[in-house]
Design a protein around this nucleic acid. Structure first.
Length: 503
RNA sequence: GGUCCUGUGGCCGAGUGGCUAGGCAGAGCUCUGCAAAAGCUUCUACAGCGGUUCGAAUCCGCUCGGGACCUCCA
């Protein structure tokens, strides 16, 4: 079997993954800013890295997965308004800042549960780590790579670049940006005069009097810059050097680039070995974001209450939709695509359910259909390789879909039960379970397990069967049609049995 | 303007120098009292133009189109 490879943004190539400490993995993923409700675009990294987390654990690693909550807020428009995003909205809504933060944190957690994302090992908050951030800033100042100006502290990018290029940690190492170009093209912003250089970024910002969220620091009352929180928290919980740092591609620059610079000064190392970035979700070809005014919040997505939605899409449909594309490709949203995902998910899940119900004959050593046996065996074996190839979930799903007709045919008796060997049948069950449930985190959203409903339907099935035997189709059709209206679809099986599905 | 990514059939999307990806939709057939589901078969492809090659959707160049980042951003 192949070994796991990730595309590393830092080296711009696929690399075989190996952890710094055998058997253990440290992973940091940039979490949400809880100044508003999460939207569809936010779902992608958290689902993507949930898959990474699940897969690494599946491979036997003990993983510490750290995903922060940004609750201190960074600047909406750095310099110009110099205002804390979170406290700004809190004033509008007349809420305590922490009340607002709590509200959106709760909503975020709700969405994560809906998506069936495994909880991270540690979910640190920026406000809970002000001290660590201040200490880190002091260290950077002491080493001469940051300076104070009017109660704010800025990172000296040019000096850092000059000194650290020789150590192979030039500014731009991750994003491929050339600092000289930066210096020319960075926009003019009002409080730029505090900075020695346009490319410098804030480590600490002086708080204007109207600021609600503020903390004491050696430089007066203020609040931390955006980039420092991730550096401080990843360093605290994962150490100076850890295995994986993840986030959206839009964070590659400047956020992750700045993280590297900060950590490099403090620890003389690039903090993470592997940098993984998921691509964006677009809507009509445009990135989903506030500035484009095309945001679909997750609650709207699930309920269908947004003007561009023709219906609601369940969390598992969205999850499946995301999995059908490679994480480094852009994914374009459309009602058509989501509806296709919904149907595709239902199809594969139905086959999976049937597969688990199949009774596998024991000790069938010779396949009744050697060609089919061979084909299934190859498809099943390719699954791990595809997953190892930089998490090609799309290809894994395509492989599973190839087996769907086989499963359905066995169930319907179109393929003989002894066509496949016992070993292959068991492998099929195992792989479907492993990938769909354990690694992809899909789950049944319908309530099949309602025992009372099951009992009632059992009775109705018998009544309907009697009617059909007597060729009283008026009665049997009435039962079926009325139940369909009630959201229960009856299906007559080939063997005379009856199955139902909540629709 | 700078840096980078991308252009696959009606839609969404994998992909590799030579082998049908897959899903959804469409068409036909089978099964069925009729449905539904399912099975089988099937129609639409690799933006354009050159080049490298025995052979390219896959490599190179150019043209055209789309996007991301350079500012908060998942």
């Amino acid at each position: 079997m192949s070994s796991l490879q990730f595309y590393n943004s830092l080296t711009r190539q696929k690399e075989v993954f190996s952890s710094l400490i055998p058997g253990r993995v440290g992973m940091y993923v940039c979490g949400p800013t809880v100044s508003g409700e999460s939207h569809l675009g936010h779902a992608r990294p958290f689902i993507t890295f949930d898959i990474v987390y699940r897969y690494l654990r599946h491979l036997g690693y003990q993983v510490r997965y750290v995903r922060n909550i940004t609750d201190a807020g960074h600047f909406e428009e750095e310099g110009r308004e110099s205002e804390d995003k979170i406290s700004k909205k809190a004033i509008l809504e007349k809420m305590e800042p922490m009340e607002l933060v709590q509200k959106y944190t709760n909503l975020f957690h709700w969405a994560m549960r809906e998506f069936n994302n495994v909880e991270p090992s540690i979910e640190p908050t920026a406000t809970g780590h002000i001290v660590e951030q201040i200490v880190m800033i002091q260290r950077i100042i002491a080493d001469g790579y940051a300076y104070e100006a009017n109660g704010s502290v800025y990172f000296d990018v040019e000096k850092y670049h000059r000194d650290f290029s020789a150590k192979g940690m030039q500014y731009g190492i991750l994003s491929g940006r050339v600092l000289d170009d930066q210096l020319e093209t960075t926009r003019e912003l009002e409080s730029q005069e505090e900075k020695r250089n346009k490319a410098d970024f804030a480590l600490w910002k002086h708080a204007a009097p109207e600021h609600i969220m503020r903390w004491q620091s050696p430089w007066g009352e203020g609040f931390p810059g955006w980039h420092i929180e991730c550096s401080a928290m990843s360093n605290k919980y994962l150490g100076a050097e850890f295995d994986i740092h993840g986030g959206g591609m839009d964070l590659q620059f400047p956020h992750h680039e700045c993280e590297i610079a900060q950590s490099a000064v403090c620890n003389h190392k690039i903090p993470a070995k592997f940098w993984l970035h998921n691509n964006m979700i677009t809507i009509n070809g445009r990135k989903m974001g506030k500035s484009y005014n095309n945001v679909i919040k997750l609650s709207e997505l699930f309920s269908g209450t947004h003007e561009i939605l023709t219906q609601g899409y369940s969390p598992m449909t969205v999850r499946f939709f995301i999995l059908q594309t490679h994480y480094r490709s852009t994914l374009d949203f459309s009602n058509e695509a989501l509806q296709a995902a919904e149907k595709g998910l239902r199809r594969i899940w139905e086959a999976f359910t049937q597969l688990n119900k199949l009774v596998i004959s024991e000790n069938n050593i010779s396949a009744g259909d050697p060609d089919l046996e061979q084909k299934c065996f190859e498809v099943l074996n390719a699954l791990d390789d595809d997953m190892n190839d930089d998490l090609n979930t799309a290809k894994v799903l395509a492989g599973l879909f190839e087996l769907v007709p086989v499963i359905n045919s066995i169930k319907d008796g179109l393929i003989k039960a002894n066509a496949l060997t016992t070993a292959t049948m068991q492998m099929m069950k195992e792989k479907f379970n492993t990938f769909l449930v354990d690694i992809f985190g899909l789950r049944d959203e319908k309530k099949h397990d309602d025992q009372k409903l099951g009992a009632v339907l059992q009775l109705i099935a018998e009544i309907r069967k009697d009617a059909r035997t007597k060729k009283d189709y008026a009665t049997s059709d009435k039962i079926r049609n009325q139940l369909l209206e009630a959201g229960i679809q009856l299906k007559d099986e080939k063997d005379g049995g009856l199955s139902w599905e909540l629709v």
